[in-house]
Amino acid sequence: MELTIFYDGTCPLCLNEMQQLKRYDSLNRIGLEDINADDIKLRFPDLDVVRANTVLHGLQADGSWLYGLDVTAKAWGMMGKHRWIKLLRMPVIKPIADVAYLAFARNRYRVSYLLTGQKRCSNGTCNIK
């Protein structure tokens, strides 16, 4: 895998984005790992699950970590989609975008409810429309 993304599988919006991303990943370049999996710490001992629950984590093939919107920008860039996300990584915009992302991450269940009608998925299973 070129990039492994650690996401919250109980978040309807998060799960929906991961499903969309995988639809474009015909070469299987991106791996997805739900941070709520029972064996996540066994398989990824370097992952701080508590921190991963507050900010998206991505592990690159070279062993380096990406966080937050850097993960999103890297993943969609690899798929050649949503190129506008790169704008959020520009030096002038990045600090503002990162604060906005952290606010979203803290409130992802409320935002999910507003947009999907689901606050939180049970057992990592969402009924994405």
Score class of each variant (00 low, 15 high):
E2S: 10
E2C: 04
I5G: 03
F6Y: 13
T10L: 06
C11D: 06
L13E: 06
C14Q: 08
C14G: 05
N16H: 10
N16Q: 12
N16I: 01
E17F: 09
E17Y: 11
M18D: 12
M18G: 05
Q19G: 04
Q20T: 06
K22I: 06
R23D: 15
D25C: 01
D25K: 00
S26M: 15
N28W: 05
R29P: 01
G31N: 14
L32G: 06
L32C: 08
D34R: 08
I35N: 06
D38E: 13
K41F: 02
K41S: 07
L42S: 11
L42Q: 15
R43M: 10
R43C: 05
R51N: 04
A52T: 00
N53W: 07
T54Q: 14
T54M: 13
H57N: 11
G58R: 00
L59I: 00
L59W: 00
L59N: 03
Q60C: 05
S64Y: 12
W65M: 09
Y67H: 12
G68A: 08
L69F: 04
T72Q: 14
K74F: 07
K74R: 15
A75Q: 10
W76D: 00
W76P: 00
G80C: 00
R83Q: 13
I85C: 04
L87V: 08
L88K: 11
L88P: 07
R89F: 09
M90Q: 13
K94T: 06
P95H: 05
V99T: 05
L102V: 02
A103T: 03
R106H: 07
R106V: 01
R110V: 03
V111Y: 05
Y113S: 08
L114D: 11
L114E: 14
T116A: 12
T116Y: 12
G117F: 08
K119T: 08
K119C: 05
C121L: 08
